[in-house]
Design a binder for these strands. Structure first.
Ligand SMILES: [Mn+2]
Ligand SMILES: [Mn+2]
Ligand SMILES: [Zn+2]
Ligand SMILES: [Zn+2]
Lengths: 142, 142
DNA sequence: ATGATGGTTTAGAATCATTCTTGGTTACAA
DNA sequence: TTGTAACCAAGAATGATTCTAAACCATCAT
């Protein structure tokens, strides 16, 4: 049992804020995810956790990741057509570089321009704007 | 039977180039998709086509869309977590604005900057770079 | 014509990620 | 203690997509 990292503490505090109980399952998922920059899938997280916690259910991994996402501790990404959802503990806005060949997902800080991604040979860029269309703005609401 | 549009002709020529037969099913899918800016799902295309061609199978819609994508006539988009794949007849590079509320998908030409999307209230931008990571570059290959 | 070949379609089964359901467990308060 | 609500495990269900097997159809050689 090592001293919990700053990120782990921040994540557990966010659970508190969201009024979610700090159960052993959730704490385990937080530990598995919070310092992982590889953007793992739910399956990969499940595979890691079942060693330490063999009773953990796959559904609990999904439920917990959804809870953590609601609490602002992580976010989920759908980056490719075939691939399944990936989970990202870095919630500050940033972009991603996806390798065509090995599927690796790299973080790209917003500061960098496309041409400055040194290590990555860029073939194409995709941009998605999220927000409200004109029709929905005029309807109003929350 | 109206005079085929320029886009339809271009799409059928692309089928030729890709050495894919111009079957009635493929021609029907081309007609249904090629002037549609709404980024429809496979289900929506299937629903439209079954009126004119009641024997058309859902699998054929998927197969045909995959063939058209290989031929460079359209591309498929996975824009939201819950939603299914959407198909886009505009193959020139461009971006997309997705409405949080109604799910509408709007085209955003590359010329425009984020702030210039007049009709759309932008909440967030997501960028994905596609290409080759450093490891895969050093391995080399095709 | 006849038959072989190969691409295409159909219908339904299979797959696979994700979500749902059910019944039991835990935390915690009255 | 008893009650209540959150939580979890296990497996079933869902839904999009892909696969399979058999039928279909155009083309080509006999
Ligand atoms: Mn990331
Ligand atoms: Mn588009
Ligand atoms: Zn790579
Ligand atoms: Zn809208």
């Amino acid at each position: 049992m090592r001293r919990p990292s700053a990120r782990v503490n921040a994540a557990l505090a966010a659970l508190d804020r969201a009024e979610l109980r700090k159960t052993p399952q959730r704490i385990a998922v937080v530990h598995a995810l919070v310092d992982d920059t590889s953007h793992p899938t739910a399956q990969q997280i499940f595979d890691r956790l079942r060693r330490q916690m063999p009773t953990m259910s796959f559904a609990t991994v999904y439920n917990t990741l959804a809870a953590l996402e609601r609490a602002g501790v992580c976010r989920s990404l759908r980056l490719s057509h075939d691939d399944s959802a990936r989970f990202d503990p870095m919630v500050e806005p940033h972009d991603h570089a996806v390798c065509d060949r090995c599927g690796r997902v790299l973080d790209v800080p917003r500061a960098r321009e496309r041409a400055e991604i040194q290590e990555f040979r860029v073939r194409a860029v995709e941009r998605v704007y999220r927000g409200e269309c004109q029709q929905c703005q005029s309807i109003g609401g929350s």
